[in-house]
Simulated assay, not measured.
Amino acid sequence: MAAAAELEDFPEGGYRYLKGVFQYSGGVTALPGYAIERMVFPEALPLAEGFEAIAAHLAALGRPLAALCACELRSPAPFSEAGFEAFNRHYAGTLERWGLARGERNPVARTNVCPLVRVPAAPAFHAFSYTVETGDAPGQASFVVSGGGEARDGQASYREGMVRLGDTSREGLREKLRYVMGEMERRTTALGFGWADASAVQAYTVHDIGALAFDEIVRRGELGCGLTWQLTRPPIVDMEVEMDLRRVRCERLWSRP
């Protein structure tokens, strides 16, 4: 279980976050008096255009840029570790200009995966989440857990931390899933929630996990919301499995102004 000290309030955005790395936090949850909503782009928007759309949407709601609390990205193909570092610095630059990211700390949650179909030409936005005020009504329990794969923390590189590196056998995938499920549980628990609180759980992999999904994911998490399996690759070369989960007040489909 994560220590309470890992959580930090971000009052200007109306949420608290689980400390992570400079490119994203481990997850976010709304502070009292706020709730999280999610907006999905019907077609992936290039990164710069996506940020412009987010800024316009928040302005129309009368919310500050700091209300952005989670980003869902789609990339053309997995990055090398050096390529991922360069992309993350570019991505985080906008969050720094918006006053969200501060040095090596970044409150915004994130998932970034690589689809097999409708592949974007460059990294693009699939969806984003943000906080809204709930007025006199009490805040609603809502959270977003960042995507995470089978690379153990504390290693010199992603590759060195991979569970069963290069092993996509059934047992290799089983061990990867078990690690990823454990990390999702750690993050969700640290935010003050459990699997039963989730309204959506996603598994991202191009490998056949059909025979493993019930025992390793659905039954382990007692997922009343079910499981969405997306045929995508995680964003790092040699990573095979990623997951995320959320509970938001509502979800909307974006349309051009």
Rank of each mutant, 00 (worst) to 15 (best):
R89E: 12
G103L: 12
E171W: 05
G93N: 11
L223Y: 07
R152Y: 08
G221N: 03
P257H: 00
E49C: 03
V119Y: 02
A44N: 05
D197K: 11
S255M: 05
W195S: 10
R97I: 01
L31M: 14
S142C: 14
G194D: 12
A137V: 08
W195N: 04
E240A: 15
E216M: 00
G194M: 00
E216Y: 09
G147S: 09
E6Y: 01
R186F: 12
L45N: 04
L73Y: 05
G166C: 07
N88Y: 01
S142M: 08
M181H: 05
E12A: 15
L68S: 05
G149I: 01
E52I: 08
E251H: 02
P123E: 07
P123A: 03
T188I: 11
L31V: 01
P120M: 05
W229H: 15
V117C: 09
R102Q: 15
S157G: 12
V117K: 13
L245G: 08
D208T: 13
E160Q: 15
R187A: 14
A66S: 15
Y130M: 06
A82I: 10
G99M: 09
I236W: 01
G221A: 10
D136A: 15
W229G: 05
P76M: 09
L231W: 06
L18R: 11
E183T: 10
F51Y: 14
A77G: 06
P234N: 04
D208P: 02
S169T: 15
P234S: 09
R174T: 07
T134S: 00
D215Y: 03
W195L: 10
W229M: 08
G166E: 06
A121F: 06
P11A: 10
G210D: 12
R178E: 14
G135T: 06
D197I: 07
P46W: 07
A190P: 01
Y24N: 06
E49P: 00
R89S: 07
T228I: 11
D208W: 13
